[in-house]
Amino acid sequence: MKNKILMIVMIPLVLCALFACANTQSRALVHPEKVTGIPNCTECHTDSWGAMNHRAPDFFQKHGNFASNARSACASCHQESFCADCHAHKEEIKPSDKYKDSPERGLPHRGDYLTQHKIDGRINPASCLKCHGRQNNERCVICHK
């Protein structure tokens, strides 16, 4: 019992001390330059921010790691709705239908996805959960009872 009380007291104290000693400057809330289109971050950033180059062929598959590491960096340009367009727990319009005015974006499920989802679901079913989550089956349940 004494050990538990000691832990309850000590853990917040240690965290407060670590917080106080960190003293880092928070990232900017808003990106200082307005960015339009799909940016190549290396055009301005010569440091490690260049790794977030959105035009790199593998940016799509790496963006989750960046969001996990530095979500506030994403938020300096993107509204929360940008994530929700694809990572939706309940959604009825495909991102590729919602933004036909941005054909250059790598938005998923173009064309006849009713047929294609059976193929993608066989090839890489884990990719479904990345956006739709483990909890979501609002659309699936219509057929998959």
Partner: peptide, 28 residues
């Protein structure tokens, strides 16, 4: 549907972020 709805506090130091409400959590 309410996709998200949260109150957020962003600290000046240490990238402190506090969110309360419906939110999308990406932590590892």
């Amino acid at each position: 549907d309410l996709q998200y709805g949260y109150l957020s506090y962003h600290g000046a130091k240490n990238n402190l972020l506090l969110n309360a409400g419906r939110q999308f959590v990406t932590e590892g």
